[in-house]
Design a protein around this nucleic acid. Structure first.
Lengths: 352, 352
DNA sequence: TTGAAAGCGCTAACAT
DNA sequence: ATGTTAGCGCTTTCAA
């Protein structure tokens, strides 16, 4: 690979002049000089080494993206938007890391980013504790954390971008209620994301609003922690069994996310129950894939693109940028996507 | 961030000694010196800058991964395995790029990798032409191309790792035939991956083997080129319509991949046909998500992990490594996963 | 066993 | 308008 020196020699100028050309400072040189340099660059197929540039400027045009698993379609969808926006609007490439929900891998990733000189990172963490993120922020990283609220009061240097999970779950719940459901359940995995708490809150609030306090239960399954995506299937089957056998079976179920909703529908079918005839299921996420199943999944679509854009914007800010520092951004703009997994409860339909 | 100089000063040694510690050359120093240096490293929370190291060594512990779209679950699955293996076995992080099937984005990505000093890349390309990859290989990159066969004869410096697509499609086709199907179709998108041709070949060969030459058709839909993932849905609907309306409707369908299979089942349902009662569908890929739908998708599972591992291994070789140079690796180890989308054709069932 | 010094490819004062 | 120079943080001969 040719260097800036090679170009300078060939164009019979100094390296600084070449550097000026590279950095859009062509105004301070004669057009013919510019032409000579450009010709040399093309002739040698010279490509400035970002490495060297970075060492000098301390800036790497790289954005770290930490996800629990890139094989999970929701994170894939987010990654796609993040990548497109980082690239198109900021010229940054994305360094991705799947943690498989392992705290060690997560810490290791942040460490590596620091060592690589990456100063911008978007984190979708499975960890309750954010101190490792605060530490990274203290080390000069701009950290954006997804799907959790900013801790009130105490500024931490970590930005927060999240959907309004309370609203999302409430929207899903109200939809079931509007269709006539009175016995509701919220299905979730144990120890999943933190946002689970907010979703439960939204579920309960919407139920209470309709006077269904006693008919709204939260169902949890799965390992206490540390699970892969296959654990979702197992948990869903367990939940489905429990639901099928329960005395006062719920007729409307809100699932913590689309993947669980899809698995739940499959599990329920395995238990002899069909959706939406015997019971209705609503997901949260708005995955494209939810439309494919039978029934197609009714769900709450989160504003993925908007959130991704906001995360990149914040991540690109300077460290310690007080204007937006430690800001919490909550996206409430979500829509219920009606597909096929919700119908009136059996009791109502028989009454007709 | 502290530098190696800071550490040297604090430990009262020279930078070279610190460097020796960092590079596992502790043997050539007194234990107490080692201890002092290590103490200083810890005290300052020193992390050597890979940037600086790279500039010196010319090596970046980064692996480029180019995919059509990271939001596509098949590529997500591959990315997961590639990332895990690159990290755990080679200490390389993954720089990911979605091209959205745009040749410009693809070229741009390769360019950026070069500029970043990345010398290893795995490419899942949508482009028929591999000359841009050969050019990159000529520039010193180790390029591994997925899902296409090595061009015979002419060595190009580009490695090839691919499933045996002929075998995969043949396996799917034979499964339908074994279940009694006699009118078959292969459903695909126009201008999708190159491997499509191999799959069609496998489909035709298996049909011919069973004497079904006249009952085996290839059905194509979709835009000629340049489409996003949403185009798959549209194409599937079009295919489903065509299938539903055809005079001699096929009873067994092999889809070019799981996503199309899933969409096709949904589209067929929309056209009033149910799977597997009216017709059977087999996918190719083995996506975890295929198990969720109703019916669960019967499919040919590709050895994703093994292929990912092979790609990383090859990508990590030195440029021009003749031992494996321009090698083509074809994975024939695949299995039919029977789920619920295949049944005997209606004619046979009625006969019982 | 340790240190001094040169240099990887580039940028940015500061000359000229 | 262009060139000289001094690093960025590290590795690596070569010396001591």
């Amino acid at each position: 690979m040719p260097t800036i020196q090679d170009v300078a020699r060939r164009a019979e100028v100094s390296p600084s002049t070449v550097s000026n050309v590279l950095n859009d400072r062509a105004d301070r040189m004669r057009p013919e000089t510019l032409a000579r340099v450009q010709a040399a660059i093309r002739a040698l197929r010279f490509r400035p080494s970002r490495l060297a540039r970075q060492l000098k400027t301390g800036q790497t045009p790289l954005l770290g993206l930490l996800v629990p698993s890139i094989a999970n379609p929701m994170y894939g969808a987010i990654a796609r938007e993040v990548e497109a926006f980082a690239q198109d609007s900021h010229g940054h490439r994305v360094l991705i890391g799947s943690t498989e929900r392992d705290p060690k891998r997560e810490a290791q990733f942040i460490d590596d980013l620091l060592a690589h000189g990456v100063r911008h990172v978007i984190v979708i963490s499975a960890l309750a504790d954010e101190r490792h993120l605060e530490a990274a922020a203290a080390d000069g990283m701009v950290v954006v954390s997804y799907d959790r609220r900013a801790a009130p009061g105490r500024p931490t240097g970590v930005h927060h971008v999240t959907p309004d999970n309370v609203a999302a779950a409430a929207l899903a719940t109200r939809h079931l209620i509007a269709r006539g459901h009175r016995r509701l359940a919220f299905a979730t995995m144990r120890g999943l994301t933190l946002s689970r708490g907010d979703k439960i809150e939204g579920f309960r609030a919407a139920a209470a609003e309709a006077g269904l306090r006693s008919g709204a239960h939260v169902l949890e399954a799965g390992p206490a922690s540390d699970y892969g995506d296959s654990a979702i299937g197992q948990a869903a089957r367990e939940l489905a069994q429990r639901i099928a056998k329960s005395a006062q079976r719920p007729t409307g179920i809100v699932a913590v996310n689309d993947l669980l909703a899809l698995e739940l529908i499959a599990g329920l079918r395995g238990a002899g129950l069909s959706v939406p005839e015997d019971l209705s299921v609503v997901g949260i996420d708005g995955l494209y894939l939810g439309a494919l199943g039978s029934p197609a999944l009714t769900t709450v679509r989160l504003p993925v693109r908007e959130m991704a854009r906001a995360m990149v914007e914040r991540a690109m800010g300077s460290p310690g940028d007080e204007a937006i520092d430690a800001s919490g951004l909550v996206f409430g703009d979500m829509a219920l996507v009606e597909r096929g997994s919700v119908a009136p409860p059996p009791t109502l339909r028989r009454a007709r």
